[in-house]
Design a protein around this nucleic acid. Structure first.
Lengths: 150, 150
DNA sequence: CTACATGCAAAGAGTTTGCAGCCCA
DNA sequence: TGGGCTGCAAACTCTTTGCATGTAG
């Protein structure tokens, strides 16, 4: 079993990129549960890595397929790529803002492939953004609408 | 049968918003085949509607569900909402940049609903972004790789 | 030691806001 | 006529770039 950090180091070496401290810091900061916004990332590395360098490192990581850019509403967030986890999609709760990772679904992936292929498109990459209400917020809303206390 | 422009006028009236010339212009500019980038929209309305007003009108239209914001790569594009056409997804060609509207696929929609529901999520909205190669560019690439002339 | 990477500061997009004047209902 | 809408200009956020310095290999 190879650790994420080793995998990261190998990816850099294989692409002829140095393993610098800024890159290590950014990668370390990305080893989190939730996808990170650029501003959060900058904040997390405040005093350690310069803002411009973070942008440059993120661009490199994206190019190397180490991280991916998720669209969450109007903004984007960053997350380690599928190579460091597994292929999945996300659902964002419009109420509480929580981003939930949805488990891989083979049937769904097949349908997406099929839809693209029947239209002559060869898929290289895809992203599904789901917006709605999470379990908690949905229940809360039900309570409000049913007014069980009235 | 009700025309798009009438439908638009009704949507404004019902939400207590005036039918101003700026809003008419923006709506008119949106009546196109392809999704429009904000800069394209601004360019198209250059001299007619001020940049800031376009942003305000777009924000209003989005809120009223008249237009939607598509994620295309790192940027976004605008397009009239499903109420003015039909529910569909898009595929962007990484080579030539063309954005193709893919026809609705009931099975796919069901899978998406299912995936969300089994994870306790009630979908309000969703967007699928497909990136790949269109028929033309894919063929061109095949030619290059097979080097039929060599 | 050398090429590549970073920090810093300034420039550049893209977007938002305050305010005075204009226009739709 | 009056309240909402627009144009204008300035402010703000996010991102990129040029250049001198630092550092990994």
């Amino acid at each position: 079993m190879i650790s994420p950090v080793e995998q990261f180091a190998i990816a850099l070496k294989q692409s002829n990129n140095s393993l610098t401290s800024a890159r290590r810091e950014v990668f370390g900061a990305m080893l989190t549960e939730e996808p990170l916004g650029m501003n959060e990332l900058v904040g997390k590395l405040d005093g350690k890595v310069n803002r411009a360098s973070i942008y440059r490192v993120v661009a490199l990581f994206e190019q190397l397929g180490i991280i991916i850019r998720l669209q969450i509403g109007w903004k984007y967030k960053l997350e380690l790529s599928d190579s460091f986890s597994y292929h999945h999609h996300h659902a964002t709760c419009l109420q509480c803002g929580q981003v939930v990772a949805l488990p891989e679904n083979e049937m769904l992936e097949q349908k997406i492939q099929f839809l693209a292929l029947t239209n002559g498109f060869v898929i290289q990459d895809h992203q599904l953004e789901i917006r709605g209400l999470c379990t908690k917020c949905h229940k809360a809303k039900d309570l409000l609408q049913n007014k069980p206390w009235s």
